[in-house]
Write a protein that binds this DNA or RNA. Structure first.
Length: 582
RNA sequence: GCGCCCAUAGCUCAGCUGGAUAGAGCAACGGCCUUCUAAGCCGUAGGUCAUACGUUCGAAUCGUAUUGGGCGCGCCA
């Protein structure tokens, strides 16, 4: 309907151009759903936009446009209103046909092909595998998964990917943390380093190693701590302290160090996978950072950059001249100790992504990484690709409040609320919905007490309740042996104001999906579903659906059946269930 | 100091890329269950869209400056 109007209007403007009344096509011709139904069903501001080039007042121009406009029978009325808006009123028959469309296409109603089968790689979460996911990661997970659903629904082919940072120093710290806990279980008396990972999960992993391997890795703690400098709180340097512990453990443990590491990362990763799967977040691929080093891609990227004169040496380290590509300072890719930086892996990773032939690469990052964007784009350009292919979506932090004060979320200290805890407390549906309800670039206050204690006030239930209520109506209809037969429904009987409102609301669904997908804004869909539910609840209170008049009953059941379908389709994209009863 | 994000009702947030009288949810107040689920509905109240200029037919939306908050500015990841 909207598309048809758009076409007609475009043609109309073209005709006026050929008549010499208008000079040139505007960059876009907009037809919008109206906010206020006294303004009709659709409106355009075209006359306001073009009044200047036509050298006449918007109202005059609007008149000319309407005269030129090809009248169709689905248009009941065209009006000029306000400063020069053109409002279109759609005929009752035509606007109620949306119900038939929805019921005919059912679960696939709302799908589109605006993506034209373009291939998209969507990377998100990618939390370091040093511990369970916390509530901060949940936002990225819910957001990424929903964007993925939206894009798929819009005809893009989407691969979801999780980048696993399984290389580097933090993995060593993780391993040492586990190992020291293991030694404690073996009966050693030792002091746990300040910089170690302190969560209970570390103890659990250590316990697991003890149970399967017994004393196999047991060494005297005196040996491990021999010649290691003092820790931070003992007046030493906590970074040096832990680095020396790592070196010590590696040298005396040999292959055992790797064995402990393998058990540790396997345990943590499977926990993360499980957690996300239960949250309805599924990745096609888990990409290992280590694999970039093992395959030599990381090394070959550095060679390429070296060959293209993008690297230089300073203070014993190898620097990438990212300032040539708009970064504010140059970045180190190889440290003076010979180790590659995280950035070096990331260069290789992005090159690898590009080589896989995607049309678009999207990274969802925490907003704290925004300063990282120029250097990654720089690396893409330097390796001869177009950095526009990479789109980075930033998600702001969720500030966690508990008991009215901000809760800390540090993995290192182990004092955080896990995503798993949150899901257990508020449920997957509420958590998914709550996370995407806010625009991603908005800071978000997540009040745990509110989310946990007052779950009934969570807006997700409002929508689910609307769905359940409709199911309940059909249950009633069933008992009265009424069956919905759309072909029997005379939709022109839907003349109540609220019924027209719902028809208008239903007709918006497609454009909401399109807009949410293109702008990567799931919250638009969430707000839409809330509005639709609101209209339905009003309808429910204002009118009875199952009435003596059989024809009217059929039409009303058809209308709420279509509403139910839209709620279901929308919730499914949000990754939220549509319960039949509550 | 420089860069990015943000500022809308008492609180938490929308506002469809510049449009018509700025909206919703909580919280407050007043109504609605002998009727398909009251996790609901209807109504009332609540605003200098941080501030000041500017751009134009028209600004919460765009530009500049200021104020106030978040984040970033490692040979960490």
């Amino acid at each position: 309907m909207k598309d048809q109007l758009q076409e007609l209007l475009t043609k109309c403007v073209q005709d006026l151009i050929s008549k010499g009344i208008l000079k040139e096509m505007p960059s876009k011709i907009r037809i919008d759903h109206t906010k206020d139904n006294s303004h009709g069903d659709y409106a355009t501001n075209i006359a306001l936009m073009l009044s200047k080039q036509a050298k006449m007042s918007p109202v005059e121009l609007a008149k000319i446009i309407i005269d030129q406009f090809e009248q169709k029978n689905f248009i009941k009325k065209i009006e000029i209103a306000g400063p020069g808006f053109i409002n279109f009123f759609i005929s009752q028959e035509s606007s109620s046909s949306i119900v038939n469309e929805i019921l005919a296409q059912a679960a696939s109603y709302g799908c589109s092909d605006i993506g034209q089968g373009k291939k998209v790689l969507l990377e998100y979460v990618s939390a370091n595998p040093t511990g369970p996911l916390h509530v901060g990661h949940g936002r990225g997970a819910a957001y990424g998964a929903t964007v993925s659903n939206l894009l798929r629904n819009a005809g893009f082919i989407v691969d979801n990917e999780y980048y696993v940072n399984d290389a580097g120093r933090q993995m060593d710290i993780l391993t040492v943390s586990i190992y020291l806990r293991y030694l404690t279980i073996c009966g050693e008396d030792l002091r746990f380093p300040d910089n170690g990972y302190q969560g209970q999960y570390i103890n659990d992993i250590a316990q697991g190693i003890y149970e399967t391997s017994g004393q196999k890795f047991h060494l005297k703690s005196d040996l491990v701590f021999e010649n290691v400098c003092r820790d931070g709180t003992e007046g030493g340097d906590k970074e040096v302290h832990i680095d020396q512990l790592i070196e010590k453990a590696k040298s005396i443990l040999g292959d055992g160090f790797k064995a402990v590491f393998e058990v540790g990362i396997e345990s943590i990763l499977s926990g993360i996978k499980n957690d996300l799967a239960e949250f309805g977040v599924v990745f096609e691929k888990w990409f290992s950072e280590q694999s970039l080093i093992d395959s030599g891609l990381s090394e070959s990227c550095i060679s390429k950059l070296k060959d293209s004169k993008n690297l230089y040496e300073k203070d014993g380290a190898l620097w990438f001249k990212t300032t040539n590509y708009g970064d504010e300072k140059d970045r180190v890719v190889v440290r003076d100790n010979g180790n590659h930086t995280y950035f070096a892996s990331d260069i290789a990773y992005h090159l690898e992504k590009l080589n896989r032939g995607y049309d678009k690469i999207i990274n969802v990052w925490g907003a704290d990484h925004h300063g990282y964007i120029p250097r990654v784009k720089a690396s893409i350009e330097a390796l001869g690709h177009n950095s526009d292919k990479l789109e980075i979506l930033l998600v702001q932090f969720a500030n966690l409040y508990r008991g009215g004060s901000k809760a800390q979320m540090s993995t290192r200290s182990g004092s955080f609320v896990t995503l798993e805890d949150l899901r257990a407390e508020v449920g997957n549906d509420a958590a998914r919905f709550f996370y995407i309800l806010r625009k991603s670039e908005q800071h978000m206050d997540f009040d745990l007490d509110l989310a946990k204690s007052k779950t009934n006030e969570n807006p997700v239930y409002y929508i689910q309740y609307a769905h359940a209520r409709i199911c309940s109506v059909f249950k009633q209809a069933d008992e009265k042996e009424l069956e919905l037969d759309v072909s029997q429904a005379n939709l022109s009987l839907l003349t109540e104001e609220i019924e027209k409102d719902i028809l208008r609301e239903l007709s918006r669904f497609r454009s909401v999906l399109e807009s949410s997908a293109i702008q990567y804004e799931p919250h638009q869909l969430a707000y839409y579903l809330r509005d639709l539910s609101n209209h339905f609840h009003s309808y429910y209170n204002a009118c009875k659906f199952i009435v003596d008049d059989k024809n009217l009953t059929q039409s009303r059941l058809a209308l709420i059946n279509a509403t139910q379908q839209i709620l279901k389709n929308g919730l499914s994209i949000l990754g939220v269930g549509a319960p039949e009863s509550m």
